[in-house]
Design a protein around this nucleic acid. Structure first.
Lengths: 213, 213
DNA sequence: AGCGGTTTGTATCTTTTGTTACAAAATATA
DNA sequence: TATATTTTGTAACAAAAGATACAAACCGCT
């Protein structure tokens, strides 16, 4: 549990002192429970979040309600799309959901706009965030366009394991299918094949990754 | 054919006077022939292009050499990825090819960085460009992940027709396949089906879109 | 232990896309 | 005009993924 001062100090190595001071007076601490959706497509954005702890999942939801995982936002990071939407007062084009209980520092957009001009470290942070996301989204496109589902599934599981720091993953096949943009049956089928190949073990609500994976 | 003065005047309604003046003294006029590739993945970027005439095609090329069309850059626009890479002195993650003969105004990165701070209209332009590309890339993801190839092909053809202003499209099936990330045979098959359905006509090197499409 | 809801396993069938191979048509070039 | 090259058409087959349906296993709860 953070207070604002402690929260701001997390960014000591990234932001210049004057900016840290402004951050302390202008930002708002927030806690979110795992599973809560903070942001939906179409919603307008009034503040930008800096993630202090936990993980956020950013996914694309199209007009037909189909969804696919884009990327995770981790501790010390922020969301590139929120930045850009916020700065252009544009509604959101993505969904942001807390994966685990998370804490975030929210910076109102009107303050933030001036920071781009006043603080080089803020500008750098914003541009780096955007660059990172562009890079990750392009990697997603590579995968979706050219990789087969079994590969994507393996990548997904590995990514998940790295994110949670555990080889035991708590997800139903349905949830995995949602993230990959496919059906539960397909996921079950592929997971079973991986189990037969000794790459993992399947339990109720859980997947245990083995070293062979 | 532009001189720098005339070129800069194209942006009169977008940029403030002082910025237009700087643009005039600091930018470089360039012409590129249709088909020429200006930028490849891995290459470092020293200048940002503002497109004066023509069209650029931006595509993703992954490590295995597979490629897929991301978006077009049109007159008066610029490339979001180039902005961000440039500002963070990061190598390119995309390929940029001139679709037709094009003219561009190149702004060296060292000048450009200061403009973010000095000129609100530049900052706005940059953020708007980034937002537009994010939006388009997400649309691409929707398509690639959830649409079937025949739909994607139709969209592609329509887009192409709109870009060139003509319903007669000069492309081989192979080229179309490259842009969509699939094989020539598949494209031929789908095109033939569309022809049978009276949606278009097929010629050597050409596709004529009909109103039914 | 029994019940109801959720999750998983699996079979079957269909559709979509990819692959290979070869011939025919169109064009370019000598 | 003759020949080479490029482009297109198509068949036949394989692989991948989606859809439907139903049973079995698991869990939480009483």
């Amino acid at each position: 549990m953070f207070n604002v001062k402690a929260a701001v100090s997390k960014f000591e190595s990234v932001f210049e002192p004057a900016l840290l001071a402004e951050l302390e007076t202008n930002s708002m601490l927030m806690t979110v429970k795992g599973g809560d959706t903070m942001l939906n497509p179409g919603q307008t954005i009034r503040a930008v979040p800096l993630l202090l702890s936990g993980t956020f999942k950013v996914s694309r939801v199209n007009d037909e309600g189909q969804k696919i995982l884009l990327y995770y936002v981790k501790e010390g990071e922020s969301c590139a799309m929120t930045f850009t939407c916020c700065m252009m007062s544009h509604f959101s084009v993505i969904r942001g959901t807390a994966e685990e209980d998370s804490e975030l520092l929210c910076v109102p957009m009107d303050v933030m706009d001036g920071w781009m001009v006043k603080y080089p470290t803020w500008k750098r942070f914003v541009m780096q965030t955007i660059l990172n996301r562009f890079t990750e989204i392009l990697k997603s496109i590579d995968d979706i366009a050219f990789k087969k589902l079994d590969d994507r599934l393996v990548n997904y599981l590995k990514e998940k394991a790295k994110a949670t720091g555990s080889s035991l993953i708590n997800l139903t096949h349905q949830q995995i299918g949602d993230d990959l943009g496919t059906s539960r049956v397909v996921v079950s089928r592929l997971l079973k094949k991986l189990e037969i190949d000794n790459k993992l073990l399947l339990y109720y609500n859980q997947v245990k990754l083995l070293s062979e994976l």
